[in-house]
């Protein structure tokens, strides 16, 4: 469903920042991308979301060449949650979620009755109904992330891309986000980049390691736990217990 061949991208000419020869995702599930700061995680996710242009190679999403996908079509393929969203002006939560289906809005910005019902259903499902009448500025980081997640789900992209969804989020909301993602994995491809190895290893079906813009390993957690030294250049300790894996710095 996601097929990448000979992908090359550079911010400055002549110096490849990202180079992925071959990567294909064939079924729904959770895919984590791990790597150091500056290893190209965000760039990779932005490339997939058609936010960066001027790459070489081929990216196929759901059987379509990314370069040929039209503006409004992308909304049905990709749902993107950026690393950090810095709101300059306040905005109502309800409308924030509603704009997820911008591509389906009429000229006046109205949605069909069914679409509006979907929002309410979603708010109920994610247990954030109480936020419906509030404005974004009054939300905590965790609440905002949930609202963002609701927006992306409402948008309905087949591929959900989340750039560092767990940073600066409190424990309760983190748990909730993980639960939601796990529910989604049957019907969507969920791509996550994160520094939280514990979450990545315990929820992902497949983990991708990136280092200096190159793919250093791909596979399930049993395979990848031995590749960590290659990816991070340092010894990472972990304990395995009851099928789960727990990382610690060991200092």
């Amino acid at each position: 469903m996601v097929n990448i061949e000979n992908l090359k991208f550079s911010y400055t000419k002549g110096k490849d920042f990202l180079k992925i020869e071959d990567l294909s995702i064939k079924e729904n599930g959770i895919y984590s991308i791990i790597g150091e700061n500056g290893s190209g995680k965000t760039t990779f996710l932005k490339l997939l979301s058609k936010l960066l242009e001027g790459y070489e190679g081929k990216i196929d999403l759901l059987g379509k060449d990314l370069k040929r996908i039209k503006e409004k079509e992308i909304a049905n393929i990709i749902s993107y949650i950026p690393q950090k969203i810095y709101l300059h002006y306040d905005f109502p939560v309800y409308d924030f979620i509603k704009y997820g289906r911008y591509s389906k809005m009429d000229l006046f910005g109205n949605l069909t009755f069914k679409d509006l019902k979907d929002i309410n259903f979603l708010l109920e499902k994610l247990e954030i109904e109480h936020l419906k009448k509030r404005n974004c500025f009054s939300l905590s980081g965790g609440e905002m992330q949930l609202v963002q997640l609701a927006r992306s789900i409402f948008q309905g992209g087949k591929i959900l891309i989340m750039d560092e969804p767990f940073s600066n989020i409190d424990f309760r909301h983190r748990k909730k986000i993980i639960e939601i993602i796990q529910e989604l994995k049957g019907e969507k491809i969920v791509l996550i980049s994160s520094h939280d190895l514990g979450i990545c290893f315990n929820i992902s079906d497949t983990i991708v390691g990136l280092k200096n813009g190159k793919m250093v390993g791909i596979g399930n957690k049993d395979l990848m736990k031995n590749e960590l030294k290659k990816i991070f250049d340092t010894e990472i300790k972990f304990i395995e217990d009851d099928g789960k894996i727990y990382f610690y710095e060991g200092v």
Binding site: K72, I74, P82
Partner: peptide
């Protein structure tokens, strides 16, 4: 104004929403 709304939230979100 709806495009303006989404663009005011975040340009990346706007872009992936089809704006």
């Amino acid at each position: 104004s709806k495009e303006l709304d989404i663009m005011s939230i975040d340009e990346d979100i706007a872009s992936t929403s089809g704006v």
